[in-house]
Design a protein around this nucleic acid. Structure first.
Lengths: 158, 158
DNA sequence: GTTACAAGGTCAGGGAAGGTCAAACTTCAG
DNA sequence: CTGAAGTTTGACCTTCCCTGACCTTGTAAC
């Protein structure tokens, strides 16, 4: 049941996998023509699927000879988790970003699907319904548990 | 005297039996049209008949080209876990007993060491310090998360 | 420099799914 | 006959996808 965005995502990932440089360069206009859609659809795909949490970095240049460059960031190193956690928990911990992060861990085979599912369970707000006071406290608790879970993954070498 | 829900249930089970992949994908709108009912009737059938206890797992995606996917799973694991959960959560949920349970799951190779450690992290009282009101609430929350984690492990197999 | 054009970016809105919930209706056991 | 459980419906919500109008930035020709 794939939709247009799924196809574009797949296309880009294939290109990326084929590339030896660790990044690809595309032209928005050209790509939108290939998939017969409006150019901004490409932005939608990029912003919904090629996020930092999922391990991608996107840069671009406007004007004549413009381009969009998509980098695949190095596979997650354990030491870098803390940094990413900082980002996820920047102002207020964001469960959605944590889920993205887990997805990436799955893709990189650092986290198993089952492990990811467990952690996702603790990120679901409805499990806390009626048991915790404020939103702030909820996010704080989720962050703590998430962090603890990551540490558990780190410690337990399978 | 079969009612609409029974027919829909039967239909889905037939599709599932025919499928070689272990799951089927349907569209709520389309199915509701086939049975000339409102879309939410499908949700009723799913939530009353395709539950985890009965050996089914349902996931879905919203938006354009959305879908509902139904997996057939082995309910045995769930049943035994659910029974144990009942025992563990008799009067008041006891984390220590849950940890014992995890240990056994580990030994029996049903749960990996890392998975067990993640779940144990969720059971540690100190992670909740200052964020949750009473002891009762704490135990309640731990139970919910523990149960969710067990379900996640079951789900993660698919 | 100024201007024309050629990129890419942003944002709001509409539409296409599926989800939730409560009210109304039916069925069934006692 | 009555109350509880199960079923059906419809109103309203959330999420995800896609489009188009309008904006910003870089390049190149003059």
């Amino acid at each position: 049941m794939a939709n247009l965005s799924d196809f574009i995502e797949e296309h880009l990932k294939r290109l990326l996998a084929l590339s030896s440089r660790g990044y690809i360069e595309i032209q928005r206009r050209e790509l939108s023509r290939k998939f017969t859609c409006v150019p901004s659809q490409i932005n939608y795909v990029l912003s919904s699927r090629f996020t930092l949490e999922r391990g991608y970095l996107v840069e671009s240049r406007r004007g004549g000879r413009g381009f969009i460059r998509i980098y695949r960031i190095d596979p997650m190193q354990f030491r870098s988790w803390d940094g990413i956690l900082q980002k996820i928990a920047g102002v207020e911990f964001e469960p959605a970003k944590a889920v993205q992060f887990l997805k990436r861990g799955c893709e990189e085979r650092i986290v198993s699907r089952r492990e990811a599912q467990i952690v996702e369970a603790l990120l679901r707000d409805d499990h806390y319904a009626g048991l915790i006071a404020g939103r702030q406290e909820l996010r704080e608790l989720q962050k703590k548990l998430f962090k603890a879970a990551l540490e558990a993954i780190l410690k337990g070498n399978h």
